[in-house]
């Protein structure tokens, strides 16, 4: 049986105790997106500022949740700031891959044109998970994977809303 230390790494508890980028952004111009985990009742809010170069210039996290969902959201917020949407999507793919959720493309359009596919491949190659690696142990606790991915799914939804609006 995997032990608690496999799940609750020190860095996770640190982000849980002192979450980064907690708060709100004025919306609009920021997008405000709610995510729900219907199983446990956790709710998360992601505020996103994306500029006209498709870069995440600011992000804030609201809502409540367990240590896994909250620390994942906190680390995510630190990791995506100043990244382009393409980079953020690549990071999300890598994170979900670490959670054993493999998605060939996160875009809803089935076909990417050659240029976009190239950019995606390049972004995938450049991904560094960094602190997020600490969440790798979650895979051993399959029920908790949804906790770890809640913020990321909400982020993707926020990006979709932001790019649709622009």
């Amino acid at each position: 049986m995997p032990g608690l230390e496999d799940l609750y790494r020190e860095i996770i508890l640190d982000h849980y105790r002192s979450p980064r980028n907690r708060g709100e952004l004025a919306s609009p111009p920021a997008t405000r997106t709610e995510g729900f985990n219907p199983l446990c009742g956790d709710e998360i809010v992601v505020y996103l500022d994306i500029d006209d170069t498709n870069t995440v210039t600011d992000i804030r996290i609201g809502g409540t949740g367990c240590s896994i969902s909250q620390s994942s959201a906190s680390m995510m917020s630190a990791a995506v700031r100043d990244k382009t949407i393409v980079e953020v999507k690549a990071l999300t793919r890598a994170f979900k891959g670490m959670m054993s959720l493999h998605e060939s493309s996160l875009d809803t359009e089935a076909e990417l044109d050659a240029e976009a596919a190239e950019a995606e491949a390049q972004a995938d190659a450049g991904v560094k998970l960094g602190d997020l690696e600490a969440l790798r142990g979650v895979v051993k606790f399959p029920v908790r994977i949804k906790c770890a991915t809640l913020a990321w799914n909400t982020l993707l939804q926020g990006i979709e809303e932001a790019t649709e609006a622009s």
């Binding site: 049986m1 032990g3 608690l4 799940l7 609750y8 446990c40 956790d42 409540t64 949740g65 367990c66 240590s67 896994i68 909250q70 606790f141 908790r144 906790c147």
Partner: peptide, 12 residues
């Protein structure tokens, strides 16, 4: 302690 974390420890 969030109930999810609490229950995880109890499961141990």
């Amino acid at each position: 302690i969030h109930p999810h974390d609490l229950s995880q420890v109890l499961d141990q």
